[in-house]
Amino acid sequence: MQTVAAVTMVRDDTFFLKAWLRHYGTLFGRENCYVINHGRGAEVAALAEGCNIIGIPGDPHKNFDIKRWSLLNNLVGGLRRYYRHVLVGDVDELVVVDPAKGVNLRDWLEDAADGRVYTPVGLEVIHRIDIEDTPITDTILGPRRHVRLAPHYSKPCIVSTPVKLARGGHFAQYNKLHTPDELYLLHLKWCDFTAYVEAMDRRNAVTSEIGAGIKETAIGQHWFAEARGEDRAIFEKFAEIEMEDGFDLSWVRRKMQRSFGPRGTTGYYEFRRPDFAKQFVLPERFSGLF
């Protein structure tokens, strides 16, 4: 049985897809990467050559995210029959192992126990436009070293047991929380000002074409132009987030464990996800991971 499959769904987000392919394609081999090409975009297909590309229609429709995660859940369930672990998430989310552990993610998964769901601690890579002026070319980590705590992105995203994930991948119908010290999920939405503006323009165009509101589409508010805000002002505010010394996040994992429990009567489990409003500088050892 193969060790791991990586699964994502993408529509035109080629900036993030390139990073996803560099990271998972290098670690796992493209033959173990599954890219759902929403809209059958030619550029996505060309970039993902060598991966398992699943083209689906791109017609605008309501309840987009509900349908998306129904598809992802079923694909993960099928692939789990052939792989020990299946890693699933949005194209702008990448899981890494702290290099201090001395192994990469593939090696870590080789030794990871089966029959579990793993939840990395979520961090958002933020572009500090006041002090980071190096453009992103082949790697993101290095030109970008600042991260902020993002409990919303501590997702149960590595699956090796029968499980259903909630819309967005934020919750799992799994009653234990495995959050290893060395495992992180890095969310890249804010990692580059120019890439952010371009991505938001595309997403606003999609919701405009659908012609429905936030509740009808079941997509995050950030997809809608009226909820977008002023782009540069958003990035300028990153400088105001409290800076923490060091990079010890063991207290975050303890809070996750202490608050873990059922999410009402939904069958899903959750932990509290407060806004800690703290940022860190990633240690130099993370530079060049992707």
Rank of each mutant, 00 (worst) to 15 (best):
E31T: 10
N73L: 07
V197T: 12
K67I: 08
R148A: 05
A6Q: 01
M256D: 09
L21E: 08
T266K: 07
I158A: 04
E49C: 10
R285S: 09
R144C: 05
D107R: 12
F15T: 00
I140C: 12
G168R: 08
P180M: 10
N63G: 08
W251D: 12
I66E: 05
A100N: 09
L87P: 01
E284C: 08
P120H: 09
V125E: 07
D192G: 05
L289V: 11
L72Y: 06
D111F: 15
Y82T: 09
E182D: 13
L177G: 01
E216T: 03
Y34I: 06
M9G: 03
I66C: 07
T265K: 12
V76A: 08
L289Y: 05
H146I: 08
A45L: 02
R145V: 07
F280L: 04
N63Q: 15
R145L: 04
W223M: 02
F16K: 01
C157S: 10
V91C: 09
A166F: 07
H178A: 09
L141P: 06
K67R: 14
L17A: 05
A6D: 04
D248F: 15
F235R: 00
M200N: 11
E124K: 10
N32M: 06
D12Y: 01
L289P: 03
D248V: 12
A212T: 03
N73E: 10
R145K: 13
R285V: 13
H187L: 08
H146P: 03
E93S: 02
G213R: 02
V44D: 03
D231M: 04
G267I: 02
I129K: 05
V159E: 04
T161D: 08
Y174G: 03
E240T: 14
E132A: 00
N63Y: 13
H85Q: 07
S154A: 15
G213F: 03
A239G: 04
N104L: 08
A212P: 07
Y269V: 04
L71G: 00
N175Y: 12
V76Q: 06
R145Q: 13
D13V: 03
P60C: 00
V97E: 06
L165R: 05
P283T: 05
S160N: 12
P143Q: 01
R167L: 12
R40V: 02
F286L: 00
G78Q: 14
T194E: 11
L141F: 08
A100R: 15
Y34L: 06
H152G: 15
F193Y: 14
K18L: 06
P60V: 01
D92T: 04
R68V: 06
R81W: 15
T14R: 02
L72N: 03
C191W: 14
A277K: 13
F193I: 00
E93F: 02
A112T: 14
L183C: 11
L177Q: 12
G78E: 13
T134H: 11
M256A: 14
R273C: 00
A113Q: 11
G50M: 11
K101Q: 12
R232L: 11
K176P: 04
F238R: 00
I140N: 13
I214E: 07
H38T: 02
L75G: 04
K215W: 11
I53R: 07
L282A: 10
K237G: 10
F224H: 04
A195H: 13
I158V: 13
F290Q: 01
D245H: 13
V76T: 15
W108C: 04
R30T: 14
G58N: 01
A48H: 08
G78T: 13
E240F: 12
M1K: 09
P120F: 11
R254H: 14
V206Y: 14
